[in-house]
């Protein structure tokens, strides 16, 4: 008998208590708390430590897309401090640099998935091991949230590949704090990743 854990919200499926083997659950079974699909669940296991090679990043200039994101982040920071004028100016800068940032020459969801896999298999692991070593709990926090959101992105793109209409008859929400995407008719009471109350989960409308 094993336990299976939801990587998004931490829900534990205990085979002993449930009386049904996890493998025997239907493929479309979802986490009862946050709706994460069955294939994301992991059996309770010992964590694997990834060895750290030396790959110092070279210093480089920020590109327009990065400048835009930093400005929109600072706009939020000002908004939180009720600095309305400063927030508007940062948003203006963010929009300016976004309009200048180049859009990749042709792109597809497949290419996106390969980037996501690289984040999950390499970038998050490396970032986590350095942040743990340096005892930077703030960095560990952003890594934990981001990794979960990235897992959900991957699973949504996989579902889309299998069924292009999987969101047709339901709704899509994005958590305005951590970026978690929730697909379902009714929002969960709190964001399963960052635990913010549901009013911060904003619906993404479908255009014409």
């Amino acid at each position: 008998m094993k336990k299976y854990i939801c990587p998004i919200c931490g829900y534990v499926y205990d085979e002993e208590k449930e009386g049904i083997k996890f493998d025997d659950l239907p493929d479309d079974w979802k986490c009862p708390l946050c709706g994460a699909p069955k294939n994301l669940f992991k059996a309770e296991a010992i964590e694997v430590v990834v060895s750290e090679e030396d790959d110092e990043e070279e210093l480089r200039e920020m590109n327009y897309g990065e400048i835009s994101a930093l400005c929109s982040s600072l706009a939020r920071g000002c908004e939180k401090q009720y600095l309305e004028e400063e927030s508007k100016l940062f948003t203006k800068l963010a929009n300016y640099y976004k309009s200048k940032s180049e859009i990749k020459e042709s792109s597809s969801f497949e290419e996106l998935v390969s980037k996501i896999n690289n984040d999950l298999e390499t970038n998050y692991q490396k970032a986590r091991s350095v942040a743990s070593e340096k005892e930077d709990r703030g960095a560990l926090r952003v890594i934990t949230w981001g990794e979960k959101v990235t897992m959900i992105l991957k699973s949504l793109l996989e579902q889309y590949k299998n069924d292009k209409d999987f969101i047709k008859n339901t709704k899509v929400y994005v958590c305005d704090i951590c970026g978690f995407i929730y697909v379902g008719d009714e929002k969960p009471e709190i964001c399963p990743v960052c635990k913010v109350p549901s009013f911060k989960l904003l619906e993404v409308e479908r255009g014409a």
Partner: peptide, 20 residues
């Protein structure tokens, strides 16, 4: 719609990463 949600999610993750 899916692309829009992904754009938003990535932007939010980047903003958060910059904070840290």
């Amino acid at each position: 719609q899916l692309a829009k949600a992904i754009i938003r999610a990535n932007r939010l993750m980047t903003e958060d990463l910059y904070r840290e």
